[in-house]
Design a protein around this nucleic acid. Structure first.
Length: 586
RNA sequence: GGACCCGUAGCUCAGCUGGAUAGAGCGCUGCCCUCCGAAGGCAGAGGCCGAAGGUUCGAAUCCUUUCGGGUCCGCCA
């Protein structure tokens, strides 16, 4: 289309400079009254040409109409509106019916290998609601990118190294001692734990029991007293992490999330990845020993200047250089994370996308800096930050306390409102806006609830076919038969509006993928559902516009073709979101 | 003190990367079923896009400043 416009522009204005032509855009309109597409060609070129935009637009439109591509008209300050001939729109129906859920698949990704890392909850306990949004956003984003033609790897990073994991092992060990009948009280035990006893939730009780069943009393000292950590720590830690990870995988599966790669931080570090990554940066002269300034305005009590090993993050747009080693000489988490991203790059990810919680916002710049530094700018890291989710019940915030009565786990959430509602609802906000998750709304059967509304549209489509089968032989209702229908009979405005929406699906997929915004898919489906409901309801006002007619009218099969195409695109969108379409409402 | 995110209808939020008269849902007013699923649809009222400057043919969108709300700020991962 754009080439046609440029041709017309050049016809009207010979000798137009290329830099002006480059600014010509042909974009879909916001308002259907303005046609299907519009171009700014006249306004962009007017100044250079020394002519009035409206006048120039008129001559361009004339050229376009003469070319016969579409109906062109001048509007507003000099826009040229282009209305596709209805026949062009209708011709897409067989295309959709043939492609089915593959409609909207795109090649914009050009097969570029993208690694999407999400969830990555520490394996120290069951998943809670805080993890849920990232899990859904990451998963839907992965599906979206795959549909847009990227080669996607879904990845989970297991933080199984460091102090937290040791604390977890101690907590599990306590449950083990209990299982074999220790005489110690919890306070007695807590007193000997380095850093104090954490993770006191009873979800570790089964782990303790399992350890007792497998190892008997061999991990403990006399009379079920604590043994030296060298006796038990590695065993308990590995067992506990494995158990926690299994539990997390189950939770993810319940949410419909299945990831391709689980990378262990511990395994990476034991393979020397951190040292290699730091050495690589050092070779680029990006590492030095230095002393950081204290944060302004809010200096910690125990602040004292101290020489540290620093990465020159400021050379890549960060605010300050970032430490790679703690004062005891061990690596910071950042150093380990650099190693992890180097590993992802080495595995072929030219584009990395990390889905993080809002509390990691201050971490984005340094990580991007590191990725660029490691690859000399070839690889890129995009970070999708998911803001906090507030859960509401009866209009009141649900307290996230661990006391019984107010749930905190992901599993509880899924059990209460269902997987599809959780997923869709989490995607009805852009990730970087805070959101409220209204438990009552998520299961409501009204238009307020987008999940319901879109599901209803799909069910309605299916229902129409069940009704149609009562009047028309089944062989005329298949995709191939419908593609042959007399589509020229689709002339009513609600039908054409629905058609225009369906045709917008491919570019919606592309735009959402490029922006890394899966929520746009959810909004598209909502709009599509509205168009379907509107077309359907028009039949209530005017019997001639009903889809199912008895006896069958000529327009019935073309309308059913449109309905089938709609259902297909809804399924296509649901597949991206990870939502299961329903055949009927109950 | 600094960094990042968000301020759009009374409420909850979109706004397709700079386009035309800023859109949905809820709530409010009034309509549409002797049934193609009313679990829906139509119409109306409701806005200085937090504020002020700037960039240009054109700004909710980009830049600067500013005011609210949220996240966070060297040895936590």
């Amino acid at each position: 289309m754009r080439t046609h416009v440029l041709a017309a522009l050049h016809a009207a204005l010979p000798g137009l400079p290329n830099e002006v032509a480059a600014r010509v855009e042909v974009t879909p309109t916001r308002d259907p009254a303005h046609g299907d597409m519009a171009t700014n060609a006249a306004m962009v070129a007017a100044k250079q040409a020394g002519r009035k935009p409206a006048e120039l637009a008129a001559s361009i439109a004339q050229a376009l109409n003469a070319a016969g591509v579409a109906e062109a008209s001048v509007a507003g300050p000099g826009f040229i509106n282009l209305r596709l001939a209805p026949a062009t729109l209708r011709a897409q129906v067989p295309v959709i019916l043939e492609a089915q859920e593959a409609y909207g698949d795109s090649f914009v990704g050009q097969g570029v290998h993208v690694n999407v890392e999400y969830v990555s909850a520490n394996p120290t306990g069951p998943m809670h609601i805080g993890h849920c949004r990232g899990a859904v956003v990451g998963d839907a984003l992965s599906n979206l990118l795959a549909k847009a033609g990227y080669a996607v790897t879904k990845e989970y990073y297991i933080n199984d190294a460091g102090a937290q994991v040791a604390a977890l092992a101690w907590a599990a060990y306590w449950r083990y001692l209990q299982a074999i009948g220790t005489a110690l009280t919890e306070d007695d035990f807590a007193a000997i734990v380095p850093g104090g006893l954490q993770y006191r939730g009873d979800y570790l009780v089964p782990v303790g029991n399992a350890l007792a069943a497998e190892h008997g009393r061999s991990l403990a000292g006399e009379d079920a007293t604590p043994a030296a950590p060298s006796v038990w720590l590695d065993t308990v830690r590995d067992t506990t992490i494995a158990t926690m990870l299994d539990s997390i995988r189950e939770d993810l599966a319940a949410l419909g999330v299945v990831q391709d790669v689980f990378t262990s931080e511990r395994a990476l570090l034991e393979g020397g990845a951190a040292d290699r990554a730091i050495a690589a940066l050092r070779a680029k002269d990006l590492i030095y020993e230095g002393v950081l300034e204290p944060p302004k305005g809010r200096t910690p009590e125990d602040w004292e200047p101290r020489p540290q090993t620093l990465f020159r993050a400021t050379q890549y747009g960060d605010d300050v250089d970032r430490p790679l080693q703690k004062s005891d000489g061990s690596n910071t988490y950042f150093a380990n994370d650099i190693a992890y991203h180097a590993d992802k790059a080495a595995r072929g990810a030219a584009v990395m996308i990390d889905v993080w919680g809002a509390d990691h916002g201050g971490y984005v710049q340094r990580m991007k800096a590191a990725v660029r530094a490691l690859s000399d700018g070839r690889d890129t890291l995009d970070v999708v930050l998911c803001q906090i989710v507030h859960v509401l019940r009866g209009g009141q915030p649900v307290r996230m306390s661990k006391r019984a009565g107010s749930f905190v786990t992901l599993r509880d959430l899924i059990d209460e409102v269902g997987r599809d509602a959780v997923r869709f609802t989490m995607l009805t906000r852009k990730p970087d806006a805070q959101m409220e998750f209204d438990l009552d709304l998520a299961v409501a059967k009204t238009r307020e609830n987008p999940v319901f509304y879109v599901q209803y549209a799909h069910a309605r489509c299916r229902s129409l076919f069940r009704r149609a089968a009562e009047h028309v032989p089944a062989e005329r209702l298949g995709e191939e038969a419908l593609a042959q229908a007399e589509l020229g009979l689709l002339t009513a405005e609600p039908e054409l509006a629905l058609l225009r929406r369906l045709v917008a699906w491919p570019r919606t997929v592309e735009a959402a993928a490029l922006a890394r915004e899966p929520h746009r898919i959810a909004f598209f489906l909502y709009d599509l559902a509205a168009d379907l409901h509107m077309m359907y309801n028009r039949g209530n006002d005017d019997a001639a516009l009903r889809i199912i007619q008895d006896p069958p009218s000529d327009a019935m099969l073309p309308r059913l073709a449109l309905v089938a195409a709609t259902a297909s695109v809804i399924r296509s969108g649901f597949r991206v979101l990870g939502v299961t379409p329903v055949e009927e409402m109950r």
